[in-house]
Design a protein around this nucleic acid. Structure first.
Lengths: 154, 154
DNA sequence: AAACTGGTTCTCTATTTGCAGAACTAAAAA
DNA sequence: TTTTTAGTTCTGCAAATAGAGAACCAGTTT
């Protein structure tokens, strides 16, 4: 047993943060693993610490970790002379992720513009709404990049 | 049969926009209904037009419409002397939704701040990352509101 | 060589989701 | 009063998801 000591409050926070991440598209196990790596005072946790603390099976932990690794939500480090991996939250990389999320809006916006191109002029008001939304999204993406640029050089 | 005439291109757009909306959390049927209401030249569609055009069952359409109504993604209007409802996309209300989405970030941010409060000072760098993210989110929310305020009065 | 470590992968179930089709309902029309 | 309209709700099934538990596997240690 390598279960971590968590206060009641911390356990609640793992659950609450877990639920939020479930709503953001993670499966329950991945959501809780990610939450644990954010809440725990120890930032670098071994497979068995995660397993024992969350009471999950090996397969659940293995799949959750690989899932989170592929999503780049977590990473791992090794320690000299040890085979074990120590997993950690990549919360610190939020700036990179933020930029990527903004950039991904381009796809949605492009589709919107394509839809607009295919629409007849039967409903000009609706068309104007799409047009304005697309234009706003371009504006918003630009401004968002400025916001984070501005934040970073400061 | 009340199937709408859609060009091949429009059918593709319904599918493509549908997929995007699935990725944003809608179930397949809701995603396609919402997509149809965005792509179709006719903006106000009856239950049976939706059903026949998308080839879905009554229950699927009924559930999808009620789901989209409760999410406020669509609305409906009636016509004098007709019992039928005509459903339409509320794409035009994106400004309102944008503000709400920004406001909802408060919850995520509050949880982050709570997590931070419970953390020991064992890993000051990680704590700093959370702190910076929380501070940035406050900043970002403020600036986003400014962006849309600015866009609206213009 | 045998046992242990740090996982991964496979098998099997339980749960959830998504939707068809049929039965149902309330209001309106015939 | 019966029928039609415009849906809603129920029943049931198929497919997808989630995760337990056991088997497995490649290094490591004994």
């Amino acid at each position: 047993m390598e279960r971590l000591e968590l206060t009641e409050k911390q356990k609640e926070l793992v659950e609450a943060y877990g639920v939020i991440q479930e709503n953001m598209g993670l499966n329950p196990a991945s959501a809780r693993v990610n939450a644990l790596l954010t809440v725990s005072n120890k930032t670098d946790l071994s497979f068995d610490e995660i397993r024992d603390t969350l009471g999950l099976s090996k397969s659940a932990v293995s799949n959750a970790l690989n899932n989170l690794l592929s999503l780049q939500h977590i990473g791992y480090k090794t320690k000299m002379g040890e085979r074990k991996r120590y997993f950690f939250s990549k919360l610190g990389q939020w700036k990179t992720k933020f930029r990527k999320d903004i950039a991904d809006l381009v796809n949605y916006n492009n589709l919107l513009k394509e839809i607009l191109k295919e629409r007849s002029d039967e409903n000009p008001d609706f068309n104007k709404n799409i047009e304005e939304l697309a234009a706003f999204m371009d504006y918003f993406m630009e401004e968002s990049i400025k916001i984070i640029d501005n934040w970073e050089k400061k």
